Computed example of a mutant assay.
Amino acid sequence: MNNKEEAVFSISVIIPTYNPNRDRLNKTLVALKAQTLALTQWELIIVDNNSTPPVKADLSWHPDAIILREPMQGLTYARLRGFNAAKNSLLVMVDDDNLLDENYLQNATTIFGNQAGLGAIGGKSLPEFEITPPSWLKEFYGSLALRDMGHETHIQSWQNNYPQYGPIGAGMAIRKEALASYMKKAQSQQNMITDRTGTSLASGGDNDIVLELLRSGWLVGYFPQLVLHHIIPKERMEVAYLAKLLNNTNHSWIKLLHSHGINPWKKIPGWTVPLRKVKGWFVHNAFAGKVNYIKWRGYCGTTDALARLEP
């Protein structure tokens, strides 16, 4: 690992997107336009992951902005397209519904400048609801990529498990040289976590990056001065969506941990899955209300994954 610091960091902001909501994407771009970091110190890369129709956006306000197209479906492939195209030493991943606070990019450059061993960092992802949310939604903030872990900084190294304060994909800032191991893994296509593809709500691509960085000797951290607001529309507060989300993400979480050799659960016989799900229906009181039902669907995703584990 090369810890040599640069006098001035430049950033590549990467926005992977698939059939984006035009209003939300525009709000994301407006927030980027308001960044206090000079436009000359960062480039903007939008990766259109095979949208229909192709993504269009007014980028005339930025002197170094481009829309690229990645035909291979999947969030991971879109991110890789952005990583390979990026010209700068720091990368910031921004979802097409993320509103970065105006000092986000400036704060990221400062943090990396002060911490030579940091490979990836993140901060607070706060909700911006399009309608008033139901009171029970807080149970699933983590699944919706929302988090506020307080006002203290936390830095972690590899500890043979997933780091409590590891950054999430929304707003994750990465030192490009720290991606070497992950990019090598991507080229080999071995144990790749492809993340969301089409209508699938699977995830884990960002967690895969974090684990690869940690195993390579880099540090990851949570920095509360990095703040973004995540737009949560009405449809993401519906029971059917959240049930599918928890089911898909729990399934991919097991797959991710297993691929890194840190899965604490054992493989289960496939024939037991229906029985476990029926038992789980009663254990989780899935009939008792929305929260219970959604959690049961998450349990079902975990059960399916454990039955399909490779040796």
Rank of each mutant, 00 (worst) to 15 (best):
A178S: 15
R69H: 13
P133C: 01
Y162P: 08
I131F: 09
L29I: 10
G123S: 05
T52F: 08
S157V: 09
Q35G: 03
P224Q: 01
Q189R: 15
I174P: 02
I66E: 10
P167G: 09
N207V: 05
N114I: 07
I67K: 13
S259M: 05
G150F: 12
M149G: 05
A173S: 14
V283L: 11
S89Y: 02
L59G: 10
L179T: 10
K277D: 06
T28N: 03
P127Y: 08
R81V: 11
K290F: 04
A120Q: 04
K176C: 03
E102F: 06
D208C: 02
V30E: 15
W158E: 01
P269T: 09
E130L: 14
E238K: 12
Q159P: 00
R69N: 14
G280M: 09
M93Y: 07
K176E: 00
L99K: 14
N114L: 12
K87F: 05
F83E: 06
P311F: 04
G261D: 13
Q159F: 05
I231A: 00
V210Q: 03
G169H: 06
G123Q: 04
G205T: 00
V8K: 01
A31S: 15
Y104E: 05
K277M: 07
L118M: 04
K87Y: 05
A186T: 07
H151S: 14
N161G: 13
N50I: 00
K290M: 03
N160V: 13
L257K: 05
E5K: 15
L37E: 03
E6P: 00
I254K: 01
L179R: 00
G217L: 12
L25M: 15
D97P: 09
K295L: 12
W42P: 00
A202C: 06
P134C: 01
N107M: 00
L91A: 04
R22Q: 11
G221Q: 06
K184L: 07
L213K: 08
W271N: 02
N2P: 08
G270W: 14
P53Q: 02
I174S: 03
N247S: 10
Q187L: 11
L306C: 10
N250C: 07
L118I: 12
L257I: 14
A178M: 03
Y182A: 02
A243D: 00
P167Q: 05
R308S: 10
A7K: 14
N2G: 14
L39Y: 13
I231Q: 13
S259I: 08
H151D: 08
P53V: 12
S216Y: 02
V92F: 01
P264Q: 11
E152K: 11
